[in-house]
């Protein structure tokens, strides 16, 4: 199937701003799905609230658009009830790590077979550019008019510490890597986290004088480096891209199937 067979074409053009990176993330995700040869009927997309969460409306899967921050909790219910389904959960940085932070770390801890895509544009776009837990110190936002004093999470370190089996990071500039990582993440049996640095020229870019979408993409090219590269040793400020973990850990639904067996024997 071609990528356009995975979308609900009648809702296009989409509602995202010109230059927004979220479409690139969606495109990368759909190419990965195409490469994996998955059918539309086996995929459930669960999303919360925000720009990123609107993606679920544009793809022709089983789509569940829920409430702010709780997509992973809904997804856990769907997955436990129907373990044969593939669960994809696109989330914004605020959705995933502020209001949804608790669900994020606990889904990671359980290592339940869900793919969480954290679309990190470092801002709340839908509500008009307030700072998020990934905005970072010193940056400007509608609610940090004198500069942000909140420190940022490191999504990768957080996911690793919380126990996610698969953890990766890339950007909307590195589209080939994005597709490759998405494929591996979706294929992984366990909780997979893909952080994608994505540009919001409308709010984060404008407030922080980062220029056009193209300029912001160039910024991703210049400020990131492959994991363990020599460049990273020379310049520790660079952000690493790549797959940080792909661990062989017990998956939650598989473990629960064992519990059912055990309980039936003992009953």
């Amino acid at each position: 199937m071609a990528v356009k067979d995975y979308i609900r074409e009648r809702f296009f053009p989409h509602m995202l701003c010109p230059g927004c990176g979220h479409g690139t993330v969606m495109g990368g995700m759909l190419r990965a799905i195409e490469n994996l040869g998955l059918t539309k009927n086996e995929i459930v997309m669960v999303s919360g609230i925000g720009c990123s969460s609107r993606i679920s409306g544009y793809v022709d899967f089983h789509t569940l658009h829920t409430i702010h921050g709780r997509a992973l909790a809904f997804a856990a219910g769907v997955k436990m009830s129907r373990p044969e389904l593939k669960l994809l959960v696109p989330m914004g940085d605020g959705d995933a790590l502020a209001i949804g932070g608790n669900h994020f770390i606990h889904a990671a801890r359980r290592n339940i077979d869900i793919t969480a895509i954290v679309m990190n544009n470092r801002i709340y776009g839908m509500t008009g550019g307030q700072f998020s837990p990934l905005t970072g110190y010193g940056k400007m936002a509608a609610t940090a008019p004198y500069g942000n004093i909140d420190q940022a999470f490191d999504t990768v370190a957080l996911a690793l510490a919380a126990g996610a089996g698969f953890v990766a990071r890339t950007t909307t500039y590195h589209i080939h890597q994005l597709v490759e990582i998405m494929e591996k993440a979706i294929d992984y049996k366990g909780f997979s986290v893909v952080e994608v640095l994505t540009q919001c020229p409308t709010y984060f870019g404008r407030r922080n004088r980062l220029g056009s979408a193209a300029k912001m993409l160039e910024h991703f090219k210049n400020t990131t480096t492959p994991m363990g590269s020599k460049a990273k040793q020379e310049n520790p400020a660079l952000i690493e891209r790549g797959i940080f973990a792909q661990r062989d850990l017990p998956e939650y639904c598989a473990e629960y199937a064992k519990i059912i067996e055990k309980a039936r024997k003992e009953a």
Partner: peptide, 29 residues
């Protein structure tokens, strides 16, 4: 529940519990 082949989840809070049952109900449980 496991004896009957049903599913039991202890979630991280009541918000997540409520969300999980809604997701499960939608799929037919």
């Amino acid at each position: 529940l496991p004896r009957l082949g049903g599913k039991f989840l202890q979630m991280e809070d009541e918000i997540a519990s409520m969300c999980a049952i809604i997701g499960a109900s939608l799929t037919g449980s």
